[in-house]
């Protein structure tokens, strides 16, 4: 009777149980691109931790008379609109931006997976209702959804990050639920079920691990957009508040108008976001392949 939903990833590989994680780790370590991604992330994490030691200037205080000076030996990445050292700000910015990106995505994953697993696992009327709600949330432009959540939760760094994360949840929910529905009908799940495994066990042990591929792809992509979206809320006046605290997304959106007169103020924070995004994605790819036993070569 259930509305059989469309398959997202149709596949029929049962999962090995023991030694899996060790295998996966070994595959990950041998994956060149993934290690490059890990290196990118490691560099930024190091920058974030060491920022107070290696920053040449205070990232929050500038000299108005030295505003928007181009890159030089004194200021490797130039100075911003109120005369602060851009290099110090990029280093300090790693702290907030990396946290913001990962926390937002994790929030989205947690909420999305709860809803997606419930819908895909339970099926029937639960699925129908949850998915229609998800459809509605998807139809509201994400940034607007986030604005509403901020209005609801109040202003603040944490609220913003949660808001952006929650606005991603519907996409994760829909992806997960699609994969789960396809898996429900697959041979090995039916086999597990016929052998008397409980529905929860089937869901957690057999279906979820195999449904993660599209989620990982989407999540690693979202880590990059989260940084931008958080800054976008700041743009609308719902941001964390103190613009003196360095944060890449904010540094980038705040320089939107300087393409022609101070392009370095776009380039450096932009490059930091792009490189960390590439890092997250290469690592995500490696992770996905490492977790997929069929991809052994």
């Amino acid at each position: 009777m259930a509305v059989q939903a469309p398959a997202v990833v149709v596949r029929a590989a049962p999962r090995a149980s023991r030694g899996l994680w060790r295998d996966a780790l070994r595959r990950l370590l041998r994956n060149g691109p993934a290690m490059l991604g890990l290196l990118f992330i490691a560099i930024f994490v190091a920058a974030a931790i060491l920022a107070p030691l290696i920053s040449p200037y205070d990232p929050t205080v500038g000299v108005i008379g030295e505003a928007k000076h181009g890159p030089s030996l004194q200021h490797l990445m130039g100075t911003d609109s109120v005369g602060r050292d851009e290099y110090s700000r990029v280093l300090f910015g790693a702290r907030i931006s990396l946290t913001v990106g990962s926390v937002a995505v994790l929030t989205g994953l947690v909420f999305g997976c709860l809803v997606g697993a419930l819908a895909g696992g339970a099926g029937g009327i639960v699925d129908t209702i949850l998915m229609r709600v998800v459809d509605v949330l998807l139809a509201v432009p994400g940034i607007l959804l986030a604005i509403g959540i901020v209005a609801w939760l109040g202003q603040g760094q944490l609220q913003i990050v949660l808001a952006v994360g929650i606005s991603y949840a519907p996409i994760f929910a829909r992806l997960l639920r699609g994969s789960l529905l396809a898996l429900r009908e697959s041979d090995y799940v039916m086999a597990a079920r016929s052998m008397g495994a409980s529905p929860a066990r089937v869901l957690l042990r057999h279906m979820l691990p195999n449904a993660l591929t599209p989620l990982i792809v989407q999540a690693t992509l979202a880590a990059a957009t989260a940084i931008i979206d958080v800054a976008g809320l700041g743009f609308l006046g719902l941001g964390p508040g103190d613009p003196r605290v360095a944060e890449w997304g904010e540094m980038l959106t705040g320089s939107a108008g300087f393409l022609q007169n101070a392009p370095y103020l776009i380039f450096f924070p932009g490059a930091a976001i792009v490189i960390s995004a590439i890092g997250f994605n290469l690592l995500g790819d490696g992770l996905r392949e490492a977790l997929d036993p069929r991809l052994k070569r």
Partner: peptide, 24 residues
């Protein structure tokens, strides 16, 4: 690798930066 980098470029640059740059 090249395809990955190009497509990630597209996604991690905000639309307004990409838009202004293309127009410029």
């Amino acid at each position: 690798g090249l395809v990955t980098v190009v497509s990630l470029f597209g996604i991690s640059i905000p639309i307004f930066v990409l838009g202004y740059t293309l127009a410029f």
